[in-house]
Design a binder for these strands. Structure first.
Length: 569
RNA sequence: CGGGGCGUAGCGCAGCCUGGUAGCGCGUCUGGUUUGGGACCAGAAAGUCCCCGGUUCGAAUCCGGGCGCCCCGACCA
């Protein structure tokens, strides 16, 4: 296609709103434009990348035996009430009423709609297994949309739903999707890692997230270096602490710590280390206030705490609540003499001896406090986040920490939705059974953004060949008739051979064309200049390496094909 | 929802403190010269200074309210 006829509004300067690389480059390369917070229009270049990714997804989903459907974007409230998610989903669910005052929402995911379909249409075990997928626009009214396509409110998602007779069969469906995801992200040219994950709002039994490794990722993952274990930090389990202390118990003492609130301040003042201090964090749930004891150098894990308490909403207590419960301002909460709250603690606290804790009194801490002797913990649990150096739960070494972008998520749902919505089938014995479900998502736009986070340089994007908007960027450098004629010839030959060529036929200076080409990031540039042409040569340049090959125009097609084949093996 | 910031030409910004003719760079349009890494000369068009109200002889500028957006946090597939 010709640049002069496409809407590719490249930007010389960085747009003020863009923070991360992918957002900035997508704006600058003229791929997307913002319509409202977290809502974007895809321009021709952006759409071509989206379509490429969708195409790979379709091929792999079909190969894995899934079939494509298309569900509506609006769904009626009653379906969501059946599963309880109309209330449970919260503000993220964008709700509205039609002219008859009937309640609807914009679909943030489609378990309810697909389960409704399947319960109507599937009656016999002979119709199972079944896996339906769609590529659809979703809407989630995010608290804080940001980073362009990385975390939009409206976004394109591939979602698939499997229905099986029993756990065993469901595991097989899950495995197929898992394998398909590995193929999809590999084909997209991404460096990624599947990790064990929390099931969040979707619920269910177990799940894996597919993380594209990138510094700018919003997720933190831990993995065993050289081992098999990898998990989202929200979920990564920890082994019970094994260390013991033979330190003699010392008597409890109360010490003044004027104005010292943070772990660091208190430790510096008392000449000790965070490992010998336990912080007392106060959380509020809709029902109660709970105190959570965590070792000073550890990070509390909200997901794990929620699980232990069996509640969905958990917030750090307000300063008012803290002082009402502890009798002290924020920074001096402690487990000793705490009333009116439950006290739970991380396993690590159990083995600590002679520790520092808050005094529940302004400007006061206790030293040489000991669990059981000085305070009673109701329940111990795995309540902190893993950190680098912790032993892997699989016993395969120690854990490292990395950042990732979640581009895909597979869930084993079990019968959560089929029971709630009575999606049953008759087994060979004529007994009614609940279908066992799985669901599988891929963020299409987020995958494109992740690809950019992983593949760019100071000049712009460097697309992996399989998802590039074009394969070759044709750059005639002068308006002379020989050059433009040569460009035209090459263009027609390549297009006839099925190569996707972006032809910069604008009357622009060489520098402008080069810079736009580097910004847009098409994998190969074919440069046709007057001098080279006089010697019968054009230049084939690889965007990624900058390597230039001089060759006669007639050989271009052959060489380009070679390169692509190499790249695919 | 809490904290911080921003809203002035298509884009990036200055001007606001200290009220008085709305500016700069890039882009756009016309003509000419140029043509291998964001050219040069000459000319031109383009603004509801986010909105509403107030103060004032006079408001982009001061005051009040609203809206939108960005960043941090609480968080979330």
């Amino acid at each position: 296609m010709r640049v002069s006829q496409l809407l590719i509004p490249t930007l010389r300067e960085d747009p003020g709103e863009a923070e991360v690389v992918s957002h900035r480059l997508m704006m600058r390369a003229g791929m997307i434009r913002r319509v409202a917070a977290g809502i974007y229009t895809y321009l021709p270049l952006g759409l071509r990348v989206i379509r490429k990714i969708e195409c790979i997804i379709r091929e792999e989903m079909d190969r894995a035996g899934a079939q494509e459907v298309l569900m509506p974007i609006a769904s009626p409230a009653e379906l969501w009430r059946e599963t309880g998610r109309w209330d449970f989903y919260g503000k993220e669910l964008l709700r509205f009423k039609d002219r008859h005052e009937r309640e609807f929402c914009l679909g943030p995911t489609h378990e309810e709609v697909i389960t409704d379909l399947i319960r109507r249409e599937v009656r016999s075990y002979r119709q199972l297994p079944l896996n339906c997928y769609q590529i659809q626009t979703k809407f989630r009214d995010e608290i804080r949309p940001r980073f362009g396509l990385m975390r939009g409110r409206e976004f394109i998602m591939k979602d698939a739903y499997s229905f099986d007779q029993d756990e065993e069969a469901a595991k097989l469906s899950y495995r197929k999707m898992y394998d398909a995801y590995v193929r999809i992200f590999t084909r997209c040219g991404l460096t990624f890692r599947p990790v064990e994950a929390d099931t969040g709002l979707i619920g269910g039994i177990s799940s894996h997230e597919f993380m594209v490794l990138a510094e700018t990722g919003e997720e933190t993952i831990v993995y065993a270096e050289g081992g098999t274990y990898a998990a989202n930090i929200e979920r990564a389990e920890l082994r019970l602490p094994t260390e013991t202390s033979d330190e003699p118990f010392r008597p409890l003492r109360k010490v003044p710590t004027p104005g010292l609130r943070t772990v660091e301040e208190v430790c510096a003042f008392l000449k000790t280390t965070p490992r010998r201090l336990a912080k007392t964090l106060l959380f509020t749930t809709p029902k109660e206030t709970v105190a959570v004891l965590i070792r000073g150098d550890h990070e509390a894990n909200v997901v794990k705490i929620k699980k232990l308490l069996g509640c969905q909403d958990l917030e750090l207590a307000s300063p008012e609540t803290v002082s009402a419960v502890t009798g002290a301002p924020v920074g001096f909460a402690g487990p000793i003499g705490l009333r009116r709250t439950r006290l739970v603690a991380d396993h690590a606290v159990r083995v600590m001896r002679n520790i520092v804790v808050g005094g529940n009194e302004g400007d006061t801490h206790y030293v040489d406090a000991n669990c059981d002797r000085d305070f009673k913990v109701e329940t111990f649990g795995d309540l902190r986040s893993a950190m680098a150096g912790d032993p892997s739960p699989h016993g395969d070494g120690t854990l490292s920490v990395a950042r990732g972008i979640e581009v895909g998520h597979v869930f084993m749902l079990g019968t959560k939705y089929s029971q709630a919505m009575k999606a049953t089938y008759l087994d060979p014995q004529g007994n009614e059974q609940f279908a066992v479900m799985g669901c599988y998502g891929i963020g299409v736009g987020r995958t494109a953004a992740a690809a950019i986070e992983q593949n760019h340089d100071a000049k712009g994007i460097i697309w992996p060949v399989p998802i590039a908007p074009f394969l070759l960027h044709l750059l005639p450098l002068s308006p002379s008739s020989q050059v433009s004629q040569a460009a035209r010839n090459v263009y027609e030959a390549l297009v006839a051979a099925g190569v996707e060529v972006l032809w910069d036929d604008r009357d622009e200076r060489a520098g402008v064309k080069f810079n736009d080409a580097d910004l847009i990031g098409v994998p190969y540039q074919l440069i046709i200049g007057e001098k080279g042409l006089a010697q019968g040569a054009v230049e084939l340049k690889e965007r990624k390496t900058g390597a230039v090959t001089r060759l006669p125009p007639a050989e271009v097609l052959e060489r380009v094909k070679e390169r692509v084949e190499q790249a695919q093996t």
